[in-house]
């Protein structure tokens, strides 16, 4: 039963990963390579130790595995436990979990630590940033849980009331954004290009989560198969 969920989560993850790998192959690799032309003295020193081709191929593979990771963790494991608590039915449940996953893994942390293009140095140390990132992941998950709870509580209200109640917990995210330490960056990438890069990254992650959710919904529920399993021992008895 639970392994059935794991299987469908993994399949959805592979599908999402392949689409995201295509995104890295077509947009990510070229965009990153282009932004690198603004780079002066990369933080790691001494330049990359692998060829450009290796980076290109490995990064596409990394994109595929990124989808597998989200598919297995969110839709293979978390969905099994959270399915009864997620608002709505069918595809809505999947989209709710995908939204929660995006908010937890990327959305909330990026409010404090937005994605940075290559060649941009950040003032905050790596350890400080890791701590803030982890903290924002926890808060993102909490906000997503509160939003799901609000959506369920207002299930029989007017759609507008329900939408407002569901979105209200997002306001909590403004608190750490206001309290976060300043993280001045310096680099030669033009501000408009940084903005374009950031939004490309955001839409890339949204595409990944949406694809996993869509494929998972398309794979259907385990309910029918579960009841079939239950029927067998009943007739055997």
């Amino acid at each position: 039963m639970a392994t059935d969920y794991l299987e469908r989560g993994a399949v959805a993850g592979v599908a999402g990963g392949l689409v995201y790998g295509l995104f890295v192959a077509t947009v990510g690799n070229a965009f990153t390579a282009g932004l690198e032309t603004f780079e002066h003295g990369h933080g790691h020193g001494g330049g990359p130790v692998v060829s450009e081709l290796t980076t290109t191929v490995a990064s596409v593979g990394g994109g595929v595995l990124w989808g597998v990771l989200f598919g297995v963790a969110a839709f293979g494991m978390a969905y099994f436990f959270l399915e009864p608590a997620l608002p709505g039915t069918g595809a809505t449940k999947r989209l709710a979990l995908a939204g929660a996953g995006f908010l937890t893994a990327s959305g909330a942390p990026w409010l404090v630590l937005p994605p940075q293009p290559p060649g941009v140095e950040q003032a905050l140390g790596t350890d400080t940033r890791l701590a803030w990132y982890a903290g924002m992941m926890v808060l993102g998950a909490l906000v997503a849980a509160l939003a799901a709870l609000a959506a369920r509580r207002t299930a029989d209200r007017h759609a507008a009331v329900r939408l407002a109640a569901t979105a209200a917990p997002l306001a909590l995210l403004a608190v750490p954004v206001a309290l976060a330490p300043a993280n001045p960056v310096h680099g030669d990438v033009p501000a408009s290009l940084v903005a374009a890069y950031r939004w490309t990254v955001v839409f890339g992650q949204l595409l990944l989560w949406a694809t996993i959710a869509g494929v998972h919904a398309w794979l259907g529920d385990a309910e029918t198969r579960v009841s079939e399993d239950l029927d067998y021992p009943a007739t055997a008895d």
Binding site: F23, V24, V27, G28, N29, F31, T32, A33, L35, H42, G43, H44, P48, V49, V50, T54, T55, T56, A58, S59, V60, G61, G62, G63, W66, S106, W110, L113, P114, P115, Q116, P117, P118, E121, Q122, T126, R198, V201, V202, G204, Q205
Partner: peptide
């Protein structure tokens, strides 16, 4: 590990994961 880290450089930037 430099080999693996550099290989995944473009992936990390595409996914918004920044180490530097």
């Amino acid at each position: 590990d430099p080999m693996l880290h550099d290989s995944l450089h473009n992936f990390r930037h595409s996914a918004g994961i920044t180490c530097h």
